[in-house]
Amino acid sequence: MYQRLPEPGGMPIPFTLDGRRLEGRAGDTVAAALLAAGVETCRTSAVGGAPRAPYCMMGVCFECLVTIDGVGNRQGCLVPLQAGMAVETQLGHGKRELAR
């Protein structure tokens, strides 16, 4: 899986994934922190149910969708990681659609 470059990284940033405590680094996006933590599947696709993971890391492929602090289908690669974020994978069909 992915490894960080052997440079002195930024400050550790704690967050949770599906309630599990994980740690990223300052400067990570949510998607980068998930990949660095060894997460292989962040969601399943809405129609076919296939496992997906962050891919382009630049906002175009929409593979990196996760629920962040209760908001579904956010692009993890476009959201800077913040301390205390509650990130949830979206497994099973589609996102959890929140009432508006």
Partner: peptide, 21 residues
């Protein structure tokens, strides 16, 4: 819109869900 679970299995003149969701 973003892809979503299939809910509309036929096209409308102004709304359609694609095979990809």
């Amino acid at each position: 819109t973003e892809k979503t679970a299939p809910f509309l299995d036929m096209p409308l003149s102004t709304i359609r869900q694609t095979d990809e969701g």
